[in-house]
């Protein structure tokens, strides 16, 4: 039953992702984008990763997509202009096919043959730095142990949030700091782009 539902959700998320780029009206496109998010959140929740799924709904659907919709509704867009601009891009279809095939080839190469060798190297490096800074040793699959309930629910039954928090603030603290830098960059970037030095009052 569950695997059938998962297949259905996968199918409908791919379908609505295609409809995002084929829809004529931009508002309809954003609504299909929201449908993609809802399908993905349902997929995660059915897999048992409840908190991430719910956070997906809250952050992507409740905050980001609604602001998308808000802005796009207020823009005065003419559908004719959009389709004219879109026709110009149709010349580049061969290029798109080449890029997509190369990308999919690379992804399949990485997932099937090599066992994430490069990614493993990076995590090992981070673990080393973490050990120097905080004195915590962590194996890179500790998150898996935290999530795998058969491992430890004989003694204690943790919430998902507790497991995530314990991992995020102890052994994977360095990742948290890095992610916070990325968020800071995303905040400063728009300010610098929109800053108009010539016409500012000072």
């Amino acid at each position: 039953m569950n695997s059938l539902l998962l297949d259905l959700l996968t199918f409908s998320s791919v379908l609505s992702a295609i409809l995002v780029i084929t829809a004529r009206s931009p508002v309809i496109a954003v609504i299909f984008l929201i449908a993609v998010f809802i399908n993905l959140a349902g997929y995660l929740i059915l897999l048992g990763i409840n908190f991430i799924g719910l956070a997906y709904i809250m952050v992507y659907i409740g905050a980001i997509a609604i602001l998308f919709l808000f802005v796009i509704m207020m823009l005065n867009i003419r559908l004719v202009e959009i389709s004219e601009i879109g026709n110009q891009y149709n010349k580049n279809i061969p290029l798109a096919i080449i890029i997509a095939s190369v990308l999919s080839y690379l992804i399949s190469l990485n997932t099937i043959s090599s066992k994430f060798d490069q990614i493993y190297l990076i995590t090992a490096l981070f673990d080393k730095v973490n050990f120097w800074l905080a004195g915590i040793t962590s194996s890179s699959n500790s998150l898996y142990i935290g999530f795998n309930s058969t491992y430890n629910n004989i003694f204690v039954n943790y919430d998902e949030v507790q497991v995530l928090g314990a991992m995020l603030y102890s052994s994977h603290g360095l990742y948290l700091v890095l992610v916070s830098f990325i968020l800071l960059l995303a905040m400063i970037g728009p300010i610098i782009i929109t800053l108009d030095k010539k016409n500012s009052p000072q």
């Binding site: 609504i31 409840n50 719910l54 809250m58 659907i61 409740g62 609604i66 919430d159």
Partner: peptide
């Protein structure tokens, strides 16, 4: 549900779409 109040927040954030889509 162990994440009851998070679920409430998630559902109520989806409910806002009813209003914005109705207006459009």
């Amino acid at each position: 549900f162990s994440l009851g109040i998070v679920t409430i927040l998630a559902i109520s954030s989806v409910a806002a779409y009813g209003i914005i889509l109705a207006g459009w």
